[in-house]
């Protein structure tokens, strides 16, 4: 199992000024594993997710991806990021580019692939997320759920080794959450390595291999979803679950 680990965090600490947002976090994500990170707001789960591709530099500890420690800012880091897809809470589609151009930009400019091949792959990815008919529109013309599905296609276009989701459904209207989770569930079934920060307990239950519970910057508990939701061992997790599951 150990040599199959794709993402490894060891003794990771992060301070925002005096605020200790990640406290001695240890986490290992295996190839093909789907890890769902849950926890109350401000528990550091988004920071954890963003630290994995160094959008948020850590204060101490080590993060390795595919056997290599995260490089410092520069070309090596850019190359690593091209192998780790990221999906944001606020979609962050390039507002001045069409849907198709959004998906094609990375492979064309970062990987310098041939336009014809990229276009074919981009269209098939848009087809997979159900947006192919909107390829020539601009992000502002799409609904939130559609935009987020495009963002997933954009990340997939780089053929990443892993995907990071930072609260991908938190900015969506309730009726659009399902369409995004469907796409994510199908990716999980296909064996994509995923780290998902979310408040969607349904997704955690049926798509995750492992649930990680964070509170106050600490990784409090991790277990299979069945065990975690049925028998949370820590008081903090029991308290959290009782608050969200009674509604």
């Amino acid at each position: 199992m150990a040599d199959e680990a794709l993402i490894v965090l060891e003794n990771v600490n992060k301070w925002f000024g005096p605020l200790h947002v990640l406290q001695d976090v240890n986490l290992s994500v295996a190839r093909g594993e789907v890890v769902v990170v849950i926890g109350p707001s401000g528990s550091g789960k988004s920071t954890l997710c963003r630290a994995i591709n160094r959008l948020e530099p850590i204060s101490s500890g080590t993060i390795t991806f595919d056997g290599q420690p995260l490089p410092a800012e520069g070309r090596a880091l850019a190359k690593l990021r091209s192998e780790v897809g990221m999906v944001f809470q606020s979609f962050n589609l390039f507002a001045h580019k069409s849907i198709l151009q959004n998906v094609m930009l990375g492979p064309l400019k970062v990987r310098k692939e041939k336009p014809a091949a990229v276009k074919e792959r981009a269209m098939s990815l848009l087809d997979r997320v159900g947006i192919a008919s909107q390829a020539d529109k601009f992000p502002a013309q799409l609904s939130g759920g559609q935009q987020q599905r495009v963002a997933i296609a954009r990340a997939l276009a780089m053929q990443p080794k892993a995907l990071l989701f930072d609260e991908p459904t938190s900015a969506l209207d309730p009726e659009m959450v399902g369409e995004v989770l469907d796409v994510m569930t199908s990716l999980a079934r296909d064996g994509m390595t995923m780290v998902v920060v979310t408040h969607e307990m349904g997704f955690a239950r049926h798509a995750a291999n492992r649930v990680v519970f964070m509170a106050d910057g600490q990784l409090v508990e991790q277990n299979t979803p069945e065990e975690f939701f049925a028998n949370p061992t820590s008081e903090r997790a029991r308290d959290f679950l009782s608050k969200i599951l009674t509604h």
Binding site: L80, L93, R154
Partner: peptide, 27 residues
């Protein structure tokens, strides 16, 4: 230009120059 635009470009593996040229400056 919202910070998320540049972050998305970085997360795709764009260098600083590519980020400016293709994502930030046009906007």
């Amino acid at each position: 230009v919202s910070a998320g635009q540049a972050e998305a470009a970085r997360s795709l593996g764009m260098t600083f120059t590519q980020n400016l040229r293709y994502v930030v400056l046009p906007q």
